[in-house]
Write a protein that binds this DNA or RNA. Structure first.
Lengths: 208, 208
DNA sequence: CCACTACTAGACCATCGATCCGGTCGGCGT
DNA sequence: ACGCCGACCGGATCGATGGTCTAGTAGTGG
């Protein structure tokens, strides 16, 4: 998708409009609600026309997901600041953007090669290099993977698990005592902050 | 009365057989290759029959995913061992099981409420409680989320990104210098171990 | 022997992603 | 002034999917 050249415009129906409408549709109806026909209908055109701008539906999802990444602000590094401050800020913005569009979590299983995603990954790499990691790859992947996993967990539990889950767990509390005692759905923001804190503390320690 | 109303089922097609065949089919053809029709065909039956044993295709995926979790061995805690050893072992087995069935990564966006998944979560909770976490929820979610995210990253890059990605990145190296210099696809095992090490070290530190 | 339950299957429905084929519009070269 | 070609659009259609309806069959308890 990203490596293919873009076509010249006639500007009545543009990729930008398609992507914006796709995000809106996804926000309203989730990933199963995104249909080429419905998307075309909302754009006042036929489904065939979309395929002139886009090769497959996957392309639409790629574009929509990268648009979400674009919502994550990249913090400005202030001098004298501890290295993990901008990293923490970026991961928080990253997470917030994904949570603002819960469908994005179910769509993260694709290469994040959009310009917005790459820009943020680049930012993360540079921040880690500046912090003292000569090979920031592992640290960057750990942080990105942590955010991804956290968001997926949260969205999954919030959207697809109802009260019946708690009941289910408590009814069979003898089978999973620790689970039933502490519950499965935590305070998500605090949980994320705590986990990110562990990661960053471990990295700090490794840096000596 | 004393003789149990032994409901002797037909036993020709069982849930177990369905799940086993679904896993095999998923292994061979990925998540898009799993079709109720194809699954039925492999089982020598009609697609309708599956719906007697299963309510929807989602059920099949839930069952298949839990079967994968069942492959992750739960380590035995040896006395005197540092607390993070069994945790590290569990997360490693967890990750390996998911990687052995790469389709599972794209299917992790659902509540993990199967017996196998719950048993391992319970194990994790207990290990963290024993380590000294009075409220292990956040730590457990951090670890689980980290594994989830790591696996998704790895599978995504390994399966869906080809050489063209490297070329694409290197061609535009001026836009993302750090990225192009260090590459996107690391040594996965080492990366995972390093990240998990950070997490555990941070937790150790928090425990005092 | 009957009734009932466990189980199976073919035809069918709405819908989906994608394509075929036939258009329409507008700027460019001449 | 003109025509023409590529950018753009859409109705009809294809093959396939998840799921249901209806109509069965086989084995077992009564």
């Amino acid at each position: 998708m990203w490596s293919r050249p873009r076509k010249a415009p006639r500007q009545t129906l543009t990729l930008e409009r398609i992507v914006a409408e796709a995000v809106a549709l996804l926000d309203e109806e989730g990933v199963t609600g995104l249909t080429m026909r419905r998307l075309a209908e909302r754009l006042g055109t036929g489904s065939t026309t979309l395929y002139w701008h886009v090769r497959t539906k996957e392309d639409v999802l790629d574009l929509a997901l990268d648009a979400v990444f674009g919502e994550a602000a990249m913090p400005e590094a202030r001098p004298g600041e501890p290295w993990h401050e901008p990293v923490r800020a970026l991961m928080g913005a990253w997470r917030s953007a994904l949570l603002r569009h819960p469908w994005s979590a179910t769509v993260l299983d694709r290469p994040l090669l959009g310009p917005n995603a790459l820009a943020r990954t680049e930012f993360l790499f540079q921040a880690l290099i500046a912090a003292g990691f000569p090979a920031p790859g592992a640290a960057a992947h750990s942080l990105a993977g942590f955010v991804t996993g956290s968001v997926i967990s949260q969205v999954t539990w919030q959207e697809r698990a109802g009260e019946d889950v708690d009941v289910f767990l408590r009814e069979r509390a003898d089978g999973w005592p620790a689970l039933a005692a502490h519950g499965l759905a935590p305070e998500w923001d605090a949980t994320f902050a705590e986990g990110l804190g562990y990661l960053l503390a471990g990295m700090d320690q490794a840096l000596g």
